[in-house]
Computed example of a mutant assay.
Amino acid sequence: MNTATIFSSLQRISDAYNHKLQSISDAQFQATPAIGGWSYSEVYAHIFDASLLSLQALEDCLNGKGKDKPTAFAVKLILFFGALPPGRYKIPKQLEGRAKVITKKEAQDLIGQFEKQLEAGYKQIPRARDNVKSKHPRLGYLSARQWFRFTEVHLKHHLKQLHRIEKSFAQ
């Protein structure tokens, strides 16, 4: 896992979310798509809230607030290949109440917070110890480097969701 490559990828993905946000009308941003599921607004609220939480977990690992636990082999495969297995996933119970309808301005602010925290976290990764891990709600224990990679995987996953929503509105 090359953290510089992941950092560059995360910056490009964040730019893609920003670009997409600018192309969506205010009304469409908060509308439920014809295919059902989350609106653009709820996706943005979830993904950047969850990404900020992931960066906090990364920080916890850096500050020694984690545990020395193994990472499951299946999770290592997800991180290696950089993608979640195909399918739709339910939001973990711990995050259920956090996905909400927000405005485009709130989404822009979340992206800005994420980008600021991302840069701060990236600069600290060289001092990370791989045996200090904090718990992900579904994937188990992840080290700081693994949290960094997971953030990329998760953001890419939801970018695909935005494309599905876009197609739904186009029909």
Results as ranks from 00 to 15, higher is better:
residue 66 G to M: 09
residue 103 T to F: 00
residue 147 W to S: 12
residue 143 S to A: 15
residue 20 K to T: 11
residue 14 S to R: 05
residue 104 K to F: 03
residue 76 K to N: 07
residue 9 S to K: 14
residue 107 A to E: 14
residue 117 Q to C: 04
residue 90 K to M: 07
residue 161 Q to Y: 05
residue 39 S to I: 00
residue 157 H to L: 03
residue 11 Q to C: 08
residue 169 F to E: 03
residue 40 Y to T: 03
residue 144 A to R: 03
residue 101 V to K: 12
residue 36 G to R: 04
residue 156 K to R: 14
residue 57 A to C: 03
residue 75 V to G: 06
residue 97 G to K: 15
residue 12 R to K: 14
residue 114 F to E: 12
residue 120 A to F: 07
residue 22 Q to P: 01
residue 68 D to E: 13
residue 156 K to A: 08
residue 148 F to D: 10
residue 105 K to N: 10
residue 134 S to K: 14
residue 168 S to R: 01
residue 148 F to I: 07
residue 122 Y to S: 12
residue 139 L to E: 07
residue 87 G to Y: 11
residue 79 L to I: 00
residue 135 K to E: 14
residue 35 I to S: 13
residue 157 H to W: 06
residue 14 S to G: 10
residue 26 D to T: 07
residue 22 Q to V: 00
residue 152 E to R: 04
residue 145 R to Q: 14
residue 29 F to A: 02
residue 133 K to F: 06
residue 95 L to R: 10
residue 69 K to G: 03
residue 52 L to C: 04
residue 111 I to Q: 11
residue 168 S to N: 03
residue 83 A to Q: 15
residue 119 E to N: 15
residue 71 T to G: 10
residue 61 C to D: 10
residue 79 L to V: 04
residue 155 L to E: 06
residue 104 K to V: 06
residue 83 A to L: 06
residue 69 K to M: 15
residue 109 D to S: 12
residue 35 I to C: 08
residue 144 A to V: 13
residue 141 Y to D: 09
residue 50 A to D: 13
residue 105 K to D: 14
residue 155 L to K: 01
residue 80 F to E: 11
residue 56 Q to G: 01
residue 33 P to H: 04
residue 44 Y to H: 04
residue 63 N to A: 07
residue 79 L to N: 04
residue 53 L to I: 05
residue 168 S to Q: 05
residue 80 F to I: 06
residue 108 Q to I: 05
residue 145 R to H: 15
residue 4 A to L: 12
residue 50 A to H: 03
residue 73 F to V: 07
residue 68 D to T: 08
residue 120 A to G: 08
residue 69 K to R: 15
residue 128 A to L: 11
residue 106 E to Q: 15
residue 61 C to K: 02
residue 32 T to E: 13
residue 105 K to V: 12
residue 57 A to R: 15
residue 138 R to N: 10
residue 74 A to E: 12
residue 106 E to W: 01
residue 21 L to H: 05
residue 163 H to N: 08
residue 119 E to S: 11
residue 97 G to V: 11
residue 90 K to V: 05
residue 45 A to S: 15
residue 95 L to G: 00
residue 163 H to F: 05
residue 17 Y to E: 07
residue 56 Q to A: 11
residue 121 G to I: 13
residue 167 K to D: 10
residue 41 S to C: 02
residue 112 G to L: 09
residue 111 I to Y: 09
residue 23 S to W: 01
residue 80 F to H: 15
residue 81 F to Y: 10
residue 28 Q to V: 00
residue 10 L to K: 06
residue 14 S to F: 08
residue 22 Q to D: 12
residue 38 W to S: 05
residue 38 W to A: 02
residue 76 K to M: 03
residue 15 D to Y: 08
residue 113 Q to P: 04
residue 53 L to T: 05
residue 68 D to V: 09
residue 113 Q to N: 15
residue 62 L to E: 09
residue 164 R to I: 00
residue 119 E to R: 12
residue 20 K to N: 06
residue 130 D to Q: 14
residue 149 R to W: 05
residue 8 S to N: 13
residue 42 E to K: 06
residue 70 P to N: 11
residue 36 G to N: 03
residue 112 G to P: 02
residue 137 P to C: 09
residue 10 L to I: 08
residue 90 K to L: 09
residue 51 S to N: 01
residue 126 P to W: 06
residue 168 S to I: 02
residue 97 G to E: 12
residue 86 P to E: 11
residue 67 K to T: 07
residue 146 Q to F: 00
residue 157 H to D: 04
